[in-house]
Nucleic acid binder design. Structure first.
Lengths: 151, 151
DNA sequence: ACGGAAGTACGACTATCATCGAACTTTGAT
DNA sequence: ATCAAAGTTCGATGATAGTCGTACTTCCGT
């Protein structure tokens, strides 16, 4: 491999694609973790509750939307948030969906209140990664095997 | 009827729900038109290329996400953008997805570049409402009959 | 050279959702 | 009273996208 996968240019960023990428809780979680870390993170080092193949899919969607930049380091694929470029393309967007850490007198209902919305998560058996999710099933960080799909 | 449908409180706004509402091009177009108009608009007065029943569905999703407020005036259902509340709940979000009208020296790639993404639109036979969409099919504003679905 | 680690690719399965038409309701004119 | 306008509700349908497992590829130690 070695050859870095295709990344869109900043000028080619498409709002529709970006939103489609960000609407998925798992992908938004990836973006959030990258934003919080402030440094590159390997695909396998994320706290997400999906199988490897599914994770690959999510990273691909994020990359094609221009949200992350990927490059290899050994067998590991590192991911970096394309903060600056995204901010230039769609000012305020990442800030809006990134959990705020309690903003002084500001409203409480920020992205921090994003409980990773149990709704679709429950219906698909996804364990809420970080946040304050109730996590009724007790699952929260599987090692290798993906999430059990009830029903 | 008369009785106004259920609207979520500002404190109940959920990022996941809001994003799911905004990811649809038709719904985002509705929000955009409301934002541009600055005043209430009746359901039937929007420039969207879907049938009435589908439109009803979209308005419901927007309302349940807290993006719009609906109330009856005669047989017409008026829609208002809940700008202030949304801005308090998720600062910058609406600004980020609302087409900017060329912002001085700022980057060009703003939400204005959202060509309503032909991608899924084409695949579903949706006519791009406003914007600068190519609109290959020539359809752009159906009176009553909805969009033809090719294949 | 071998084996494991880290991902990717591919095909299959499901659930969701945008869409429509037809039937129904409500309201305001005529 | 009647009618039309404006929406809603109710299935049905079709496409998309998230998910998984298996098989395959690459790279790095040992």
């Amino acid at each position: 491999m070695e050859r870095t996968p295709p990344h869109p240019e900043k000028e080619q960023f498409d709002l529709q694609r970006v939103l489609e990428a960000l609407v998925d809780p798992v992908r938004r979680s990836i973006v959030t973790q990258l934003d919080a870390a402030g440094e590159d993170i390997a695909c396998g080092a994320f706290d997400i509750a999906v199988s490897k193949s599914t994770a690959t899919h999510h990273f691909k969607v994020l990359r094609e939307a221009g949200l992350i930049r990927q490059h290899y380091v050994g067998t590991s694929r590192m991911n970096a948030l394309r903060r600056t470029e995204m901010d230039q393309a769609f000012p305020g967007l990442l800030d809006a969906i990134t959990p705020r850490v309690a903003e002084a007198g500001a409203n409480v209902a920020s992205a921090a209140r994003d409980t990773v919305s149990a709704r679709r998560l429950q219906s698909q058996g996804i364990a809420a990664a970080g946040e304050q999710a109730p996590d009724p099933g007790g699952v929260s960080r599987q090692l290798d095997g993906p999430v059990v799909r009830r029903s």
